[in-house]
Design a protein around this nucleic acid. Structure first.
Lengths: 132, 132
DNA sequence: TTGCTCCTCACGTCACGTGAGGTGGC
DNA sequence: TTGCTCCTCACGTCACGTGAGGTGGC
């Protein structure tokens, strides 16, 4: 198995504030303000300098889109990012449940699975688990 | 069957702007501004006056909470209300899917339903639909 | 030393809320 | 007529972005 390169990990804090600001197209002071408002929390070195990850940069770009294109203020951005996480979580849960139900339907109606719908089982024999 | 009283319907537009503003604890001009920003859309009478429903009042109270307590601006409120609708929709979908799956499990394991988990069907006889 | 980092303070700009002012219809 | 409605305009306040200024460590 190949070893994962550490440099490729998007949560690895590798950028100093000047580089992060350049990558995001922002003023370094703006990044400090966003942190003060609780919008993101870059890591700190032992010398107390900020270190930003690739994920932090993505977060900065999202903030930029919300503030500049949509005109949302920072309190709004914070709430929106929280809600977006909730949406993502729920979407994953829906996918998981749909897959389980699809799976059940495949047992109930082998070869005729098109949608997850409740159907009467009366005339249908379940396919044994061991034959799957 | 009893007839539903029309006055009780929360989507019925019954309040003129001065009353709606009083109920929401706001200035009438503020309500007009919110409409201009697309945060809510009260009905209009044939004479072009606004008429607010109970649901509109609830929406106004939500806007008030987001702006005054959380400090969100109106662009943010708009986006947050859209995302909240998406969250509500997804939560309902999750409940629906969980119920369906629970139902399937009840068929597979009568009397032993605790969690929705995939289990082997090999040794279990399905409960006939007609007996439910 | 140079060029970064840290922080605080201040200022220009803009959004928001609200009041004034003038209009029109029940 | 009175009291509402409609609208636009203007002003005070505050948040946001950014620059200055002074500090400290690799």
């Amino acid at each position: 198995m190949a070893e994962r390169r550490e440099g490729a990990r998007p949560d690895r804090a590798v950028f100093v504030i000047s580089v992060a600001a350049e990558l995001a197209g922002m003023h370094p002071q703006t990044l400090r303000m966003y942190e003060r408002k609780g919008l993101l929390r870059p890591e700190r070195t032992s010398g107390n300098s900020r270190r930003y990850s690739e994920l932090d940069i993505e977060r900065l770009r999202l903030i930029q889109e919300l503030t500049q294109e949509a005109g949302v203020n920072l309190a709004g951005v914070k709430r929106i990012m929280e809600l977006q996480r909730e949406v993502d979580r729920l979407q994953a849960r829906v996918r998981e449940l749909e897959e389980r139900l699809q799976h059940r339907m495949a047992i109930a109606m082998p070869g005729r699975v098109e949608r997850t719908e409740i159907v009467p089982l009366r005339t249908l024999a379940p396919r044994p688990w061991s034959e799957r």
